[in-house]
Design a protein around this nucleic acid. Structure first.
Lengths: 101, 101
DNA sequence: TTCATAATTCCAGAATGATGGAAATGTATG
DNA sequence: CATACATTTCCATCATTCTGGAATTATGAA
């Protein structure tokens, strides 16, 4: 993963509504939720939420698909995993005996 | 962990120099590095780096201690762990059979 | 086609964050 | 005490991000 990608992902997580979206979708699992459903649950105007969903998707944290008139969002587990791996890469120079549990 | 704490931590990670600091210190392990050493390795002015180190420490991602004339920084492994746990909490409603590996 | 629904894009103002030289604050050495 | 060293704080400028109503686009129903 490139540094810029990771920065975009962390920036996406560094905002109350967006962090709420990701946590909600992490819990929801692969089935995801529609944009409107997310807006209702988080009590955010549709317009505002749309900006945030787009940013999260651009950052590789969500994926989306259309189902009839609605657009569903679920979290991108691969994206999340690569981000956390990037952050912890070569932890303690790869020597577990140095690494606090 | 509170939402505000997590937001501060992700915001701290969402910047090139600060992300570089954390990754460098993740690799360096518990022994840490001095502020000056970090400034040299990342080629950042001392003043600028100081702001970033302070922000990372406030966010609970680093800890610091003085050794003679230098101040050492190491990453706060507990802080990192709680952040990642907070993000992934109740993944797939706790049902691993739904959760993509 | 006409209407209703779901979501996104446009736009502007308000707020927040990054940067780094200069000055100030410790901390050790001669 | 005087000096050098390591780091932090002050300060001002510049840039980026957040917000949400109104207008727009896309889809499905009558």
């Amino acid at each position: 993963m490139k540094t810029d990608t990771a920065i975009a992902a962390f920036a996406a997580l560094a905002q109350e509504t967006r962090l709420g979206v990701v946590r909600l979708l992490v819990q929801a699992g692969p089935a995801g939720l529609s944009a409107g459903d997310i807006a209702t649950r988080l009590a955010v105007p549709a317009s505002t939420l749309s900006h945030h969903l787009a940013q999260l998707e651009r950052a590789g944290l969500l994926r989306s698909w259309r189902l009839q008139r609605q657009i569903f969002y679920a979290c991108d587990y691969d994206g999340l995993r690569s981000l956390l791996t990037f952050l912890m890469q070569d932890c303690c120079q790869g020597r577990p005996e140095l690494c606090p549990p």
